[in-house]
């Protein structure tokens, strides 16, 4: 009965926690729905506009990343779920029951992150692959891509990983900030507002800083071509994961010493 036994028992407990609240299932369903629906919407409008686009625009069009653009919005659903997985424990006082049952707080956090990362990855990949195939099916009359095209599989996998990563990042923020509203505010600010603000800085600072922010770094995994300077897919992955892991690590350090 080593620490692994305790971790495994907590993984089971966290899995029960996650699936026994209906709002979790809603947030996961909404993540898939938004990613796929926006892909279909963008693709249809692009098809109807295609013949009026200039040749240059048609040449620049990149259908793979285009079909994954719904992630810009659906990241909020899974990110907020990540926040709630943690902050709902603090808000309801359940955290005291959790820590009374398992005094090793690191084990609890590890189990929580593990379960949520796996669920997030499954949901993320379902979203990403479905969005890709639906998008390409609609675009097929004009200019579409196949999953066997260079970079296609990597991008689609990267899109799913991005959603899971944003979820874990949200969870980490939830541990650090404990309050739902505060953690959601920081999440939205860092993945959606911060890139816009940095864009206003004088060149080349804006580009230099921007590509290292969480969302541009993560999006480097699924954008094959970009009109802005960005990191390579591999470096983007590492920088992006560093944000998610970093938030969880800071959360763990705070969780160890704070009163529940």
């Amino acid at each position: 009965m080593g620490p692994i036994t305790v971790l495994w028992a907590n993984i089971r407990a966290e899995w029960v926690k996650l699936r026994s609240v209906r709002s979790t299932l809603w947030a996961l369903a909404i993540t898939i729905a938004i990613t796929v629906a926006l892909s279909a919407l963008f693709a249809s409008t692009r098809v109807s506009r295609w013949d009026r686009m200039s040749l240059a625009e048609q040449v620049r069009f990149e259908p793979i990343g285009f079909s994954l653009n719904g992630i810009f919005l659906s990241q909020l659903a899974i990110g907020v779920l990540g926040v709630l997985v943690m902050t709902s424990e603090f808000a309801t006082g359940q955290i005291r029951a959790t820590f009374a049952a398992t005094p090793s707080r690191g084990t609890v956090l590890l189990a929580k992150i593990g379960v949520f990362a796996v669920v997030g990855l499954v949901i993320g990949e379902i979203s990403s692959f479905t969005a890709f195939f639906v998008g390409q099916a609609i675009l097929s009359s004009k200019h579409s891509a196949s999953i066997s095209d260079p970079g296609a599989l990597r991008s689609v996998l990267g899109g799913g990983l991005y959603l899971a990563g944003i979820g874990v990042f949200g969870l980490g923020l939830g541990v650090i900030l404990r309050r739902t509203a505060g953690a959601i505010a920081v999440l939205v600010a860092s993945v959606m507002i911060l890139p816009q603000l940095v864009e206003l800085l004088p060149s080349p600072w804006n580009d230099d800083i921007s590509k290292y922010l969480p969302s541009p770094a993560g999006q480097a995994m699924f954008h094959i071509t970009s009109n802005r300077p960005s990191l390579s897919a591999g470096v983007g992955l590492l920088v992006f994961l560093a944000y998610a892991v970093g938030a969880c690590l800071i959360g763990w350090l705070l969780l160890r010493t704070r009163d529940a």
Binding site: A9, A13, K17, S20, E89, I95, R96, A100
Partner: peptide, 27 residues
């Protein structure tokens, strides 16, 4: 076993759900 003054229960979870995760966490 402990019962703390403030409720330590997630309101959206069923009674059985609450006890089930607690049970699982301690085998």
């Amino acid at each position: 076993g402990s019962l703390l003054e403030a409720k330590s229960i997630h309101p959206a979870r069923s009674a059985r759900g609450h006890l089930q995760w607690l049970a699982d966490s301690n085998r």
